[in-house]
Structures are given as C-alpha cells and as structure tokens.
C-alpha cells in the first residue's frame, strides 16, 4: 500500500485509461451482441428491429429474456414487468454515482441511460476528476460495441459460427480487475465478504434471481455499515 494523502486528488494520469477499459467490454459485448442479434432474427424479427432493441433498450439480460416472450406474442405489460424484475438492480447503481456523474444535462442523462453493469463498473473505477467527455466516450463506445455485435449477429444470421468457446469470459475478467481496483481503494474488505455471503445465501434461496436478491442483501448490510469520518485514509 502506498501512503495515501488525507485529501486525495485525482492523479494527473488516470491509472486506467478510458479506452483500455472499453476494450474488454468490446470483447464481451460484440460476441454477446452477436448472439442476441442472431437469436432475435431467428425468432422472426428483421435485422433492423434487433439493432433498434440494442439502441433503445441497451440492457443485455432483459434483451435476451424478451426474445422468446416477444416471439410468443405476450402482452406488452407482462414483458415490461419482466424487464422491471430483471433490471431492478440498476436502481442501486445510481446511488454510488450521484456525485460522480457530470452535471451537463446531455452527458448526465445519456450516462444514466447507458448505465449497464459494465458501464457502471467502468465509471466507478474512473478517478474523481474525470471529464464529462471521457465518461460519455466510454459509455458511447460500450453501446457502440453492443450495437455492432447485434448488427453482425443479425446480418450474418445462420452462417454465424463462433469458433472459440469462452471469449465472453473477458467480461468476468473485467469484473475481476475492477473488483481488485475497488478492493485496493476500499476502506475495508468487508463489502467483498458481505457480497460473497449474500450471493451464497441468495443462490440457496432463489437461484433464478440470485443477483438481485444478493444486491438487496448487500444494500441492507451496507445500511448498517458504520460511518467513518476520514473515509479515504488507508493505513
């Protein structure tokens, strides 16, 4: 551990560059987007509808969930309700970004719109003084990869063959890198252990909604987390 000053300023050079954080997102989003585009076109949608989904909705899990529901012609309200359940965790993401997002309306509301798991991860890792333009760039790049993957998957269609299994592990690796960086800057490692235990409990209780339940449990634990006066002073 390096000695941390009591009033940390953003370092002159960010420890992690914006572009290098978007590359692993691309490695996850392009293949996953291709799978989504492929499945949606297979279910009977035209290619441009798949692209529209990725431009308008931009929420991976719920887009995958929607394909069979839409193909089955379920009512709009029930698909909206399923979207609400699948994406409920995103409510919690904004809580830790309230002070961090830029105040210019265009930048702020685009970032809020684009707040996927991966964009949230990248934004929380950027240092405090990061410019609005850089934040928007990384979010736009991320959505660009997702839309590009969707387009490729939809157009290539039946000919698409992903030769290598496991390339989407890049997303897990990205989360691991970001968890290590959060761990490095955290006051204590308690949130990490709380998260692991929460996930184990949630998995045992409701495996279908393990992530959402685990986040809710972690939020409850966080509410009882003791206040500290100098949050950033690490020993």
């Amino acid at each position: 551990m390096s000695a941390t000053p009591s009033n940390p300023q953003p370092p002159a050079t960010p420890p992690i560059s914006v572009l290098s954080l978007s590359v692993p997102v691309a490695m996850g989003y392009i293949p996953l987007g291709m799978v989504f585009g492929f499945l949606f076109v297979q279910a009977g949608a035209p290619w441009w509808l798949a692209v529209t989904a990725s431009v308008w909705v931009f929420a991976g899990a719920s887009q995958f969930m929607m394909v069979p529901m839409l193909a089955a012609g379920l009512p709009v309200a029930s698909i909206a309700l399923a979207t609400l359940v699948v994406n409920l965790r995103h409510v919690f993401y904004g809580l830790s970004l309230l002070h961090k997002l830029p105040h210019q309306p265009w930048a702020r509301w685009y970032l809020v719109f684009a707040l996927t798991d991966e964009t949230y991860s990248v934004l929380t890792t950027l240092p405090g003084g990061t410019r609005a333009g850089q934040m928007v760039t990384v979010a736009l790049l991320n959505q660009g990869w997702w839309v590009l993957g969707t387009l490729l998957g939809a157009v290539i269609g039946a000919q698409a063959q992903i030769a290598l299994v496991g390339l989407d592990f890049a997303l897990a690796a990205l989360f691991a890198v970001l968890a290590v960086e959060q761990w490095r800057s955290a006051e204590s490692s308690a949130p990490l252990w709380v998260a692991v235990v929460s996930y184990a409990v949630a998995w045992a209780l409701v495996p279908q909604q393990a992530l959402l339940v685990a986040i809710a449990l972690s939020v409850c634990a966080g509410l009882f987390w003791p206040k500290s006066t100098h949050a950033e002073v690490a020993p």
């Binding site: 809580l95 997303l171 968890a179 949130p191 998260a195 393990a210 986040i215 966080g222």
Partner: peptide, 21 residues
C-alpha cells in the same frame, strides 16, 4: 452516502461471482 462507499466493491464482487457462476 454510507451506501455509496459500501456498494461499489460489493456490487463488483457480486457481478464477478454471478458471471463466474
């Protein structure tokens, strides 16, 4: 504010565990 300090590491860990599982 307490949650804002607690949640990032917790959520990142959860996303990692969830993806791995």
């Amino acid at each position: 504010q307490r949650l804002g300090r607690f949640l990032p590491l917790a959520i990142m860990t959860l996303l990692l565990v969830h993806t791995l599982v």
